[in-house]
Write a protein that binds this DNA or RNA. Structure first.
Lengths: 151, 151
DNA sequence: TGACAAAGTTAGGTGTGGCTAACTATAATG
DNA sequence: CATTATAGTTAGCCACACCTAACTTTGTCA
């Protein structure tokens, strides 16, 4: 592993990675200002994070030049994004939490859950939709159940 | 709100709170060494955390004397503990994740999920057990579903 | 009761992650 | 093309959360 600063990624760096990933979906470079706005953080903090991501080999960063992800960075970001989508979908579709709350909860939980739990969660979403297709409307029943106890 | 240092509790402080809560279940005071061991942290770190908890009005702490929780601290700790139990139960019982992985995931996620998601999760556990009692073995079906796709 | 071990604290250091204020580079435009 | 606005960086600060090493307090027991 030449020159790579391995270690686990902090939740904060994962957030930066994800922001860059999302902002550069259409191929363009992510602007520092946009990252700052998306994460609700100062531009100075972004500069610091970009330097770290570069040191870890996850981002191509040159001062006064845009940012893109290296392929390692892209991989890591895609994984965070995947977790995010699975969690949001679970909170929203299965548990029936309102979309904005689901999104925020996903943002926070995406850094804490490992592959085995995420894998099961994804599977569970599929299971629920499969049951639904087979005529067993679990989501509906659960909503009903919640309404009865006013949760 | 006299003298209270409000703000949100950090994940770390919640961990300390929870450890004290658990260690003083039987009414005794929590010893600093035991907290350090339970959290895998140095005794010095515990001292620092206890000072913070005291400042926030959550722990009764006097150097060289044991620690107990104030009623505010007890409330907060009980809430963290409740989240922990709900999450562990969901990961283990519903998703079928192995107990140790479920415990660890709960430890990490308990700081990130708010009341609405936790409430729904608790409700979901009840829903599943109710369905089971009514002859709809969702857990079994889901396990089967996972096995088929080797998750 | 006095010495020793264990528990606890203090002092001082590290890394992360954030901030503001002030500076510099780039871009846009009259 | 000079000026100005905006984007980005640097410098310097703070808080948190951890650590080790050294010191102090407490409790035990010969």
């Amino acid at each position: 592993m030449l020159g790579a600063d391995n270690e686990e990624l902090s939740a904060s760096l994962e957030d930066y990675l994800e922001a860059i990933f999302r902002l550069s979906c259409d191929g363009r470079q992510a602007r520092s200002k946009a990252i700052a706005e998306r994460l609700g953080v100062s531009r100075a903090s972004v500069t610091g994070a970009l330097r770290l991501l570069k040191k870890k080999g996850l981002a191509n960063y040159k001062p006064y030049d845009g940012v893109t992800l290296t392929s390692a960075g892209h991989h890591a970001a895609a994984e965070v994004d995947r977790k995010h989508r699975i969690l949001k979908s679970f909170f929203g579709q299965v548990l029936g939490v309102d979309p904005e709350t689901a999104r925020k909860a996903a943002c926070r939980a995406e850094h804490t859950l490992g592959p085995s739990v995420i894998g099961r969660l994804l599977c569970f979403i599929e299971f629920v939709s499969r049951e639904n297709a087979a005529g067993n409307d679990l989501v509906g029943k659960f909503q009903q159940f919640c309404n009865e106890r006013a949760v």
